[in-house]
């Protein structure tokens, strides 16, 4: 078949090129990986009407349909209008224009989340509700960002492997008047967390607060309710993790004990930061690379601009990532090949 297709434009429209000429894979957003089950009838209809009858759960929790013919894309886009409107505007309050042309941009990737405390006994936060609050801050936008949300420091959702990993934590209060000195919390912390608890000679528990990860395993273990979570949730933000062909790396702690307001305000600055790095010309470039180009200190300055940190919040003064360099001295190259960050002069 003789095709003349602008595949870059289609990619922005969330249709990805297939190895079969003229076929595409649609990726529908599913913020926080949680939708009403009723949308599964949409899924089935799309797959059976225009796709190859199968359906893939994307690695970023998108709903993916293979085998969609180029000619059918307008019909598919018209059909998913309701889904986009109900999820983006209804559930996530994005307030975007939705028409018969499908997704306006691929930009910010689908926000992923583990099931969190909607179900999980370990979860400290409602992960998909947070995803729904973040969605309007990053979508629709042409700037790329990958956000993974994990309900607790167990990090089932790999917050350590994306641009912004958000981990729900808890600040824990000790109520000595309820403690029977059984040591269950000490064992739980040692076995499943950071070994920061110790039973002292008085039968009381002492904690080395510096290294508590806020998982609340101690709360779960205590038979007497002597450890309790503070009512408000806290977050650890892990920055700059990524996979990839060049320099995959695990993210590092950027913020610890941040409040929800702080997390939302920081992410609210992402667009401004990306625009500055790319001189206001969005390219198909992943968020981590933008942080590399600007350097952590510049990133910190721009991303914290106007953000009022909660009193508990700690911020990394510097971050020392540890890349896997597939090619040694990856960064040592002629000056003309160096990337530029920020507005070009003139």
């Amino acid at each position: 078949m003789n095709h003349d297709i602008n595949i870059k434009k289609l990619r922005i429209n969330c249709f990805r090129q297939s190895k079969v000429p003229g076929e595409f894979m649609l990726q529908m957003r599913c913020p926080g990986g949680m939708i009403d089950a009723k949308y599964l009838s949409f899924v089935q209809h799309i797959a059976e009407t225009w796709g190859d009858g199968s359906f893939h759960i994307g690695t970023r929790q998108s709903l993916d349909f293979c085998g969609i013919k180029y000619e059918d894309i307008p019909a598919v886009n018209a059909y998913i209008r309701t889904y986009i409107d109900e999820i983006e505007n209804g559930v996530c309050q994005v307030g975007m224009e939705v028409d018969e042309h499908g997704y306006p941009t691929i930009g910010a990737r689908n926000i992923t989340a583990c099931i969190g405390n909607h179900h999980c006994i370990c979860g400290n936060i409602n992960t998909f509700e947070l995803a729904r609050k973040i969605e309007p801050l990053i979508f629709p936008s042409h700037y790329h960002i990958k956000i993974n949300i994990a309900g607790c420091p167990n990090d089932c959702n790999k917050a350590h492997l994306c641009d912004f990993g958000i981990i729900g934590t808890a600040k824990i209060d000790y109520h000595p008047e309820r403690c029977i000195g059984c040591g269950a919390c000490v064992r739980a912390c040692e076995h499943g967390a950071t070994r920061v608890l110790e039973l002292n000679a008085d039968g009381r528990v002492e904690k080395d607060p510096c290294c508590c990860v806020g998982c609340a395993e101690c709360v779960k273990a205590c038979p007497a309710g002597a450890w309790t979570r503070r009512p408000e949730p806290f977050y650890r933000v892990i920055l700059g993790g990524r996979t990839g062909r060049q320099t995959p790396r695990t993210g590092k702690v950027f913020l610890n004990w941040a409040s929800e307001e702080v997390v939302l305000a920081v992410i609210g600055n992402w667009h401004k930061f990306s625009a500055w790095v790319m001189d206001y010309k969005p390219e198909y470039l992943h968020g981590g690379h933008l942080i590399d180009r600007a350097g952590y200190k510049k990133f910190k300055e721009l991303i914290l601009d106007g953000v009022e940190l909660n009193p508990e919040c700690l911020v990394a003064e510097d971050i020392y990532w540890h890349e896997t360099e597939y090619r040694s001295n990856f960064n040592v190259k002629p000056m003309r090949m160096h990337h530029h960050a920020g507005p070009s002069n003139g």
Binding site: G123, A216, V219, R229
Partner: peptide
């Protein structure tokens, strides 16, 4: 009621 002081998050005791 002690809000959010249950064994699991967002549960009360």
């Amino acid at each position: 009621r002690f809000p959010k002081q249950g064994r699991f998050s967002d549960t009360d005791i």
